[in-house]
């Protein structure tokens, strides 16, 4: 039998190596593909197909074409809900982003960097991180009790100090309470990112500006905020998406009520599917929701320039 030459062995090895390196990424990603395929892509397809049925409690796949969509768009309530959702999303994003900038600048810039009171900075940061760390049921429970209807609840105790009768806060101000609760968690969740961005500012830049006699406010405007520009853009876009998709806290706090006053589009989807058991309608609404958030997602893609964030591997193995 003929011994293979080194060149032949090398060629064989190379073929093997190329096959291996072609398979390698897919081998790493295959568990992800399986899980995402089964538990994300398949549900999406099911939802899509279901949106052409009028499935209700009986769980029958009764296809009625676009009739569900026709019914959906004819619903006068939908316009109000969409309008309310947009106001909720826009106002909420503005308020939460502004307040997290405010908190970050004071804790991480003023207290940590300028006044060297790191302990105060840490305490405030932890306080402001609490809401995003708190499990949603507890968070809802807290607000339920602060604004509860009886004279044992916090806000009514406060009223009693002024000799006022207890009131049913959730009936009178449902939108305001919900808004407050959502803005606080959302602001809370941006603080880590913003703090990390402020920390990345080279200290010598700030020191140099201080030596040149710049006031902290001036440094904040001319150095800190420009550094935060990218995280702010990023967080604003994500906030929009998150507000748009919020439903859990609404479910826990107000259930969309009273009289549908706190029903946003995402919650409307949930309500139709799970409270009213109108699965066909719920699915059709979900498709509309997905279409709207996909538009937002495309905007995110444009802003984040995904391709530039993919570096080519720096080797040919």
């Amino acid at each position: 039998m003929k011994q293979p030459t080194i060149a032949e062995i090398d060629r064989k090895e190379d073929r093997k190596a190329r096959r291996r390196s072609k398979r390698f990424p897919f081998m790493l990603m295959s568990p992800f593909f399986v899980l995402t395929g089964l538990f994300v892509i398949v549900p999406i397809l099911i939802m899509f197909v279901m949106s052409f049925t009028d499935m209700g409690l009986t769980l029958e796949w009764n296809f009625i074409g676009f009739k569900t969509y026709a019914r959906l768009f004819a619903d006068p309530a939908l316009k109000t809900i969409i309008l309310r959702t947009f106001i909720f999303v826009i106002l909420g994003t503005i308020c939460s982003v502004l307040s997290s900038i405010f908190i970050t600048v004071i804790t991480t810039f003023y207290l940590d960097t300028i006044y060297r009171k790191e302990n105060a900075g840490i305490i405030f940061r932890i306080i402001w991180l609490l809401p995003s760390l708190t499990p949603s049921v507890v968070y809802a429970f807290i607000w339920n009790y602060v604004f509860g209807p009886t004279d044992y609840h916090l806000m009514n105790i406060v009223r009693s100090w002024f000799g006022l009768e207890p009131i049913t806060w959730f009936a009178l101000y449902p939108q305001q309470i919900l808004f407050l609760a959502v803005v606080i968690t959302s602001a809370s969740s941006s603080i880590i990112l913003f703090s990390a961005a402020v920390r990345q500012i080279p200290l010598h830049i700030i020191q140099a500006a201080r030596v040149d006699g710049a006031s902290p406010l001036y440094i904040c405007r001319k150095i800190v905020l420009p550094y935060l520009r990218w995280p702010i853009t990023q967080k604003t876009l994500w906030s929009v998406l998150i507000y748009f998709c919020t439903y859990e806290i609404i479910f826990l706090l107000t259930k969309g009520g009273p009289a549908g006053k706190t029903t946003t589009f995402a919650y409307y989807v949930y309500q139709n599917a799970f409270n009213l058991k109108k699965f066909g309608m719920g699915a059709a609404l979900a498709v509309v929701l997905v279409a709207m958030s996909a538009l937002l997602g495309l905007l995110v893609l444009r802003v984040f320039k995904v391709n530039e964030q993919l570096q080519d591997p720096r080797m040919d193995i």
Binding site: I6, A7, D10, R11, E13, D14, A17, I317
Partner: peptide, 10 residues
């Protein structure tokens, strides 16, 4: 030996 496509380890 032509090593164009020989892996580093070899």
């Amino acid at each position: 030996r032509l090593v164009n496509n020989v892996e580093p380890k070899n």
